[in-house]
Design a protein around this nucleic acid. Structure first.
Lengths: 305, 305
DNA sequence: CTGTTAGCGCTTTCAG
DNA sequence: CTGAAAGCGCTAACAG
């Protein structure tokens, strides 16, 4: 920096102010210094800058699963544009996750934390809170609201007989969502399946064995939806003419196959989450939660009842 | 750090040495200092450390597409374990990519660069080279070698009549790979398709329209393989009894559906790439290329001819 | 093996 | 609006 200062005939302090857009420099000086710096290919050293200035210009991004890639991509883009470094931590498997939280390696290194596609345990949140910087958690959102969207779409298409396939282990009841929209519940049309294509095929078999076929199926898992899709087609059923199908998950899969699905605008949500976090950093420093909101991607697997 | 030094009754220099595992401290002192530091929840400030020490302990990870998530996850894990920060840059769309290379924002900030799932243009490589740190590019590997693996597997199963589906736009010939393994080439069994499920279905139709069906199909794309799979099954063909199917890509898709595929051990390759890069950083500082190597994941879509 | 002494390259008062 | 000076929190010789 002092080289640039010398070349521009000013002091280092002025170069610093000029390059960072700080007030207190005449426009002419700023322009000139900026130009000299560019010519000399000079860029401020982040380490020294944050050491001296106390700012860090870095955000830690925690993610459970790199699968939801677009969320990450959106966040990264927005952060880079805002001049922040992205320190990535993939906390997918238990080992790396506990290793991370055991001794959170972020002390005095980041201005904030963004937790994507990861549900933090109480103790984990506490560990992050100790950093003293805002934490923004992007919550995967409510299955209930996703379901509402799917049901609404099917009802609009005239469906009344809707089966719901949940993940095994889910013991919560979602009947109310259907009931709230005026549907009758038939117990045999609530099914559980492991989140695999094979599971979906079995579900389809079960459905076909029933005394009456629903006119639509909603699956919580994309893999299951695909299994149902393939099994029904192999059985000669047409989709969507004979049966409509909606998935509540599995963005990539459902898009590839053309299955109507509830999904998030992940990239945009990532950007938005960053905006919230940066706002908090500049503002009250509060931690918060960003709820992912769902949208319906209507594709070829749904039609009139 | 001086607080810790005082509390431990030593100098700051000793604390520094002890905490970083530098030689020149007695084991007893190191243990004691470490303990005091932990008790005081002290961690070395990276900024100050790298400013003073000249080391940076950070690697820039460039990735074109977060899709190949496991590569990234593997690399991140290995880097974290080695004590390096991961600065992530997602260079998916043209805008962010050119923005990045226009003014590579990494000067004096990283010890090395890891380029994953991204093919660097000449000028981009040059821009990175200017950083003066090693660059390790992970190359997606050769379609030819992936194909060789698939063909070998099918030949082992007794197949001689193999169709190959390439991406539209690929004008290179891969006949030699088949010929080298003693197969005869039938021109009508080389097909081109857009990398979509629908494209795959069309390919299947074309195959079914032909005068003779091959006993096996190799598809360069996972989506296409899925399309072929679904179309054939709907047509009443059994897979693998009537026809075997291998995909050269589409890890997630093919795994979900149970299609035999050539794939990389992405997580492990990511770790390995990191090892190579760190080696170069500590060693000759040379940039290099890590070729992804392929493996065959045999699933239910292939069987004896 | 340990302490002392200079910086690392910036930013920030405080004067001018 | 600009410059001089004093650190930011560490590490790296250099002594002892």
């Amino acid at each position: 920096m002092s080289d640039v200062a010398r070349a521009a005939g000013v002091s280092a302090a002025t170069v610093s102010r000029a390059l960072r857009g700080e007030p207190g420099v005449s426009e002419a000086t700023r322009r000139y210094v900026t130009e000299v710096a560019k010519r000399m290919r000079y860029a401020i050293a982040r380490d020294a800058s944050s050491l001296a200035g106390g700012r860090r210009y870095a955000i830690a991004v925690l993610t459970g699963d790199v699968g939801r890639g677009d969320l990450l991509a959106g966040a990264e883009g927005a952060l880079r544009q805002a001049g922040f470094d992205v320190l990535l931590y993939v906390l997918g498997d238990e080992g790396s996750r506990s290793g991370f939280f055991e001794d959170v390696p972020l002390g005095r290194r980041v201005d904030g934390v963004l937790a994507l596609s990861i549900t933090l345990a109480e103790s984990e949140s506490a560990a992050l809170a100790e950093l003293g910087v805002p934490v923004l958690t992007v919550d995967d959102g409510d299955l209930r609201s996703a379901l509402r969207l799917a049901v609404g779409h099917l009802i609009d298409l005239g469906h009344r007989d809707i089966a719901l396939v949940l993940a095994v282990g889910v013991d919560e009841s979602y009947d109310e969502v259907l009931v709230a929209q005026g549907l009758e519940i038939r117990p045999e049309w609530t099914l559980w399946s492991s989140p695999t294509v094979v599971g979906g095929e079995q579900v389809a078999d079960a459905l076909l064995d029933g005394e009456r076929l629903p006119t639509a199926v909603i699956s919580a898992s994309g893999e299951v939806a695909l299994g149902v899709f393939m099994r029904l087609r192999r059985d000669g059923r047409r989709i969507p003419e004979d049966l409509s199908l909606v998935s509540l998950d599995g963005q990539d899969l459902t898009r590839a196959v053309g299955i109507t699905a509830v999904e998030g605008a992940l990239r945009e949500e990532g950007e938005q989450a960053v905006a919230e976090l940066l706002g908090s950093i500049r503002g009250d420093g509060e931690s918060s939660v960003h709820e992912l909101s769902w949208q319906l991607a209507v594709r070829e697997s749904t039609g009139r009842a």
